[in-house]
């Protein structure tokens, strides 16, 4: 796969799943579990914010004279 900018949502979900796996393993002590829980709830808050993002307008891609792509507003 080419090099992509890794979306925050994907990162957050991946970390969240890892935290749950760690807690389910039973190998985490109580203090560490509390810390992981807080971190997990922060990630959940991030995910909810991303999912609740308002709709973005569609933009048009055009190439300028140098062939560089630019985004422009469109009435599509």
């Amino acid at each position: 796969m080419g090099k992509h900018r890794r979306p925050k949502f994907e990162d957050a979900i991946a970390q969240l799943e890892q935290i749950i796996e760690n807690l389910e393993s039973g190998e985490t002590g109580l203090e560490d579990s509390l810390a992981e829980y807080e971190k997990g709830m922060d990630l959940i808050k991030q995910c909810r914010t991303i999912l609740g993002t308002v709709q973005k307008k569609i933009k048009k891609l055009t190439a300028d004279t140098d062939g560089k792509l630019v985004k422009k507003d469109t009435n599509v």
Partner: peptide, 9 residues
């Protein structure tokens, strides 16, 4: 809704 769409006509 938060996805950015770019149209290449």
């Amino acid at each position: 809704p938060g996805l950015e769409l770019l149209l290449y006509d």
